Computed example of a mutant assay.
Amino acid sequence: MFDALIGFIREQYRTNDFIPLHAPVFQGNEKKYVLETVDSTFVSSVGAFVDRFENDMAAYTGSPRAVATVNGTAALHVSLLLAGVKPGDLVLTQPLTFVATCNAIAYCGAEPVFIDVDRHTLGLSPTALEAWLEESAYLDPEGVCRTKAGGQVLRACLPMHTFGHPVELDELVRVCARWNLALVEDAAESLGSLYKGRHTGTFGCVGTLSFNGNKIITTGGGGMILAGEALGVRAKHITTTAKKAHPYEYVHDEVGYNYRLPNLNAALGCAQLESLEAFIASKRALAASYEAFFQGRSAQFVLEPEGCRSNYWLNAIICEDLEQRDALLLASNASGVMTRPIWRLMTHLPTFADSLRGDLSNALWLEERVVNLPSSVLPEPSI
């Protein structure tokens, strides 16, 4: 299968050169908008393109407010603060994620609690979440969710839409409402992904996006907070060093963060957003080709969950076992076709090795089997 897969990938990208996992595509107004920004001299955190990028992203996602940040991790940090996470709190999340999800929890002085994932979404399982809460938590007389063992406050739930595939949001919303947990969505990988027709990142009290260089659109580095009107206003305030408006005085009314996205980066983002639907169409066509290739083969292609539109940010397969996974990684990378395993579980990292957790059987099973395949936007047909 390995030689056939490598050949198939090379056919998709029409090259014998090195094929990366995911590369950015600049085919529209990127240079034009960036040069406009340079000519304006407004290249830092104030400028027309920052405002435009926020407004365009709010319109695209259907979020009342969108607040641009310097990166996705900063967006996560502030979103958890907006959700009320305090030092000593616990935040329920998944062990199968990029480390930024858990780093943002640590920035708040809080700790993660790791709950298993579903195999069909690769994201946080509402069933596993509810089971853990039933066994390990209770609501105190004030309605605060606490652990039975030590009485620690369980403040929020932080799912991540893995590789652009939405988690089971209806059920997560229900479980969080029952247990008075703030739902914060890590939608870093799922720009353009829809759950029952609604954009990911808009189901909880707040959601986040990432525009890192490897995402479906990029600002070089950047992120976005999606929130309602009141939280959106507050997000903009504390990400702008909590500076109060004044013609010339420096007045800061609380601890703030220098997290605003520079206008120069936002200019790139505005141009990229103009191409987003075309990028999604290309990536979904590539996913359909991968799906067809793996029909009848031993590895299983990861499909979007039922009722969802995934952006297929990173295409993924589930190998038969660890031996097949490692053999594929070795053969493909040796041939100049980049593939990667899924992340190591957060519980295997020294920083989070002692964190509370439920049964993680699915996450452990997936950790040994999932491989990401090249997923860049396909080259345009030659004329």
Rank of each mutant, 00 (worst) to 15 (best):
V78A: 10
H165A: 06
C145N: 05
G164Y: 01
D118W: 05
H120W: 14
E189Y: 10
S79R: 03
S125E: 03
T162Q: 13
E189P: 09
A182V: 09
S79Q: 04
H199P: 08
A149T: 12
G84M: 03
V78Q: 02
T97K: 07
W179T: 05
E111T: 10
G84C: 07
E171K: 13
G88P: 04
G204R: 01
A106T: 15
G204T: 00
V85P: 08
V117T: 11
T208P: 03
T208F: 04
F163N: 12
L92Y: 05
L183Q: 00
E135A: 15
H120Y: 14
V99L: 12
E189W: 08
E168I: 12
G143N: 08
D140G: 10
D116H: 07
G151Q: 07
E189F: 13
E185A: 04
V167E: 11
L124I: 06
V144D: 09
L96K: 07
G151F: 02
D116S: 08
L80N: 00
V175L: 08
T202E: 01
Q94K: 10
G201H: 00
G204D: 03
K215F: 09
C176F: 04
L96V: 06
I105A: 04
V206Q: 03
S79N: 10
H77D: 15
L81W: 08
Q94E: 13
S79K: 00
G109Q: 06
L209C: 11
A100W: 04
R119Q: 15
A177I: 10
R146W: 06
T121P: 04
T93H: 00
A131V: 13
T97A: 15
R198L: 12
V153N: 11
A83L: 04
T162G: 09
K86M: 14
K148Y: 08
V91P: 02
S193C: 06
Q152N: 12
